[in-house]
Computed example of a mutant assay.
Amino acid sequence: MAAEGVGETASKEQLTAAQKQVLRKRQDLDYWKKNALKIRSRNRITGLAIGAFVIGMFSYTILSVKQERIMEDIDNEAKINYIRGPRTGTNS
């Protein structure tokens, strides 16, 4: 039995580059098959996190633009009052 282990090691060392590449691809395929469910769940969680971030940023942007419009209205009112001048006893 010890001779079989040595023979396998010797045969692995004598593999050509193409055979080594095929062996690596098989190992990669086995890895993906074994861990596909775990990877999918991680991808879903990542997608949901990115989606939540995008929706949050969009909502924040819309809210800040609405507030900016309110500030423009306040600024316009202030300009009108500034142009009219201060209210004193002589001009009211």
Rank of each mutant, 00 (worst) to 15 (best):
E8A: 11
V6W: 09
E68W: 11
Q67P: 02
E68R: 14
K33I: 02
K12S: 10
I80W: 01
R42I: 04
K20T: 03
T9C: 13
Y82V: 09
K25G: 08
R87Q: 11
I80R: 05
A18V: 05
N91I: 01
T61D: 05
A52V: 04
L37M: 10
T9H: 14
K79S: 09
E72V: 00
R40D: 00
Y82T: 14
N81S: 06
W32V: 15
D28W: 10
F58S: 14
K25P: 11
R26L: 14
G85V: 01
A18H: 00
A18K: 04
K12E: 05
P86I: 01
I80F: 01
R69T: 12
A49S: 06
K12L: 01
F53K: 15
D75E: 12
D75G: 04
V65R: 15
P86D: 07
R40P: 02
I62E: 11
A10F: 06
P86F: 00
K38G: 07
G47R: 03
F53Q: 08
R44H: 12
V65T: 07
K20E: 02
D75T: 15
L63S: 11
I50P: 04
R24G: 06
K34I: 03
Q14Y: 04
Q67D: 10
N43R: 12
A17V: 11
A17R: 01
F53W: 08
A17E: 14
G47M: 01
G5M: 06
S59E: 09
N76F: 14
D75N: 08
A3I: 13
S64P: 06
N76C: 08
R24W: 05
I45M: 14
D73P: 00
A36H: 07
L23K: 12
T90A: 11
I50C: 02
L63C: 03
T61S: 06
I39R: 04
F53H: 11
E77Y: 05
D75Y: 15
P86L: 01
R44N: 08
A10S: 08
S41W: 06
D28Q: 15
K79V: 07
Y31I: 00
R69P: 03
I70S: 07
N76R: 13
E72A: 10
E72S: 10
R42N: 14
S11Y: 00
D30V: 10
A18Q: 08
